[in-house]
Amino acid sequence: MGEQKRKEVSKQTTEFIFGKKNFTWMLIGLGVIALGFILMSGGGSDDPNVFNPEIYSWRRIRLAPAVILIGFGIEVYAILLNPNKGK
């Protein structure tokens, strides 16, 4: 009986804090954040003496920051998600 107990003690399992669901949601969140930064890019001018009003388009001022904030919300959800729930 002592031998079996010793085997149980020597057998170590490594368990991560985050599970596969957490990492999946984190990758989705990073993708949404990257999409927001891609939407925000562009609209500049090649000539510094010429002003391009396209930099203030609806996509760059409203949509892209909202998409980035949604991505950050997904990241918070991914961190707070309990990977053991539902097993």
Rank of each mutant, 00 (worst) to 15 (best):
L30H: 06
G43Y: 05
K20Q: 05
T13E: 06
V76E: 02
S41G: 12
K87S: 15
I70G: 07
M26N: 02
V67I: 13
I79C: 04
Q12N: 07
L69H: 07
K20D: 07
N52R: 07
S10G: 03
Q12S: 04
K5C: 04
S41W: 09
L27G: 14
S10K: 14
L35Q: 04
E54H: 10
V9M: 01
N84G: 02
V50G: 02
K11Y: 12
T24F: 13
L30E: 09
K5D: 15
S57Q: 15
P53I: 03
D46N: 12
W58Y: 14
M1H: 09
L27K: 10
I55K: 14
L80E: 15
E54S: 15
I55V: 09
G44R: 10
F51S: 08
K20M: 06
S57F: 05
I68L: 01
K21G: 02
L80C: 13
P65H: 11
I68E: 00
P83D: 10
F16S: 03
Y56Q: 04
P48Q: 03
Y77P: 10
W58L: 05
L27S: 09
M1K: 12
G29P: 04
G71I: 06
G73W: 08
G19Q: 01
F51W: 14
P65V: 03
R60P: 12
I79T: 06
G31C: 15
L80P: 08
R62N: 11
G71S: 08
A66G: 01
A34E: 08
D46S: 12
Y56E: 08
L27F: 11
Q4G: 05
G31P: 08
T24D: 11
Y77R: 11
L80G: 05
S45Q: 09
R62H: 08
K7D: 07
I28R: 00
N49H: 02
F23M: 08
G29D: 07
S45A: 15
V32D: 00
L81V: 14
P83S: 14
T14N: 04
I17C: 03
S57G: 07
I28C: 07
N82T: 07
K11C: 02
K5N: 10
V32H: 00
R6K: 09
N82V: 11
P48W: 06
R60N: 13
L81I: 08
I61R: 03
D47Q: 05
K7I: 04
S41K: 12
Y56F: 13
D47S: 10
Y56W: 14
K87R: 15
L39V: 11
G19T: 12
G86W: 01
V32E: 00
G71R: 11
A78R: 03
I17E: 09
S45N: 15
P48S: 05
D47G: 03
E54Y: 07
R62V: 06
R62I: 15
E15H: 10
P65Q: 12
T13V: 09
S10V: 14
D46M: 04
A64R: 02
I74W: 02
G2P: 13
P53C: 02
I68S: 01
G42Q: 13
F18D: 00
E54Q: 11
G71E: 01
K11W: 06
